[in-house]
Amino acid sequence: MPTAIGQELVALLPRLRRFALVLCRSPSLADDLVQGACERALANAGSFTPGTRFDAWAFRILRNHWIDHLRRTRTEGMTEDVTVQTHLVGDAGEGPILNRLLLAEVQQIIDAMPPEQREVLLLVCVENLAYREAAEVLGVPIGTVMSRLARARKRLIELTAAA
């Protein structure tokens, strides 16, 4: 049974990496996180409920793995990895909605947001998780998802409106 999810997991690797990058903002640490999360997912394949979203299940495992990592490194201080923060230069990708200038600005604004706002932005706006699904990934009530998400998007709206 564990390997039944194997190929789905491999296909999900790019999106897991993107989520990991949003969480830890270090490419090398992100890869370690993804690998660790995949191993946990494979070892706990039985906990996946068929018929539910596989990506949401894997995101949740990845995020828990990250939380555990934070717990373990809290007393140890920052690891070398975290200090090597690479600024991610994105690409409009999805068509000519944005010019590069605005895109860079949006990235900067999101970058400056607290981690709990960044992760919920990604899960809902990019990964298209329903509020309820995002709440499950994050282990918070749906109301918390909504208030964090609304606050983050309001901020983005306000800061880009002047442009």
Binding site: P14, R18, V22, G90, D91, A92, G93, E94, I97, L98, L102, L103, V106, Q107, I110, L121, L122, C125, V126, R153, L156, T160
Partner: peptide, 9 residues
């Protein structure tokens, strides 16, 4: 805007 900031790449 958020979607564009987190491109698939």
């Amino acid at each position: 805007l958020v979607r564009s900031a987190f491109p698939e790449e």
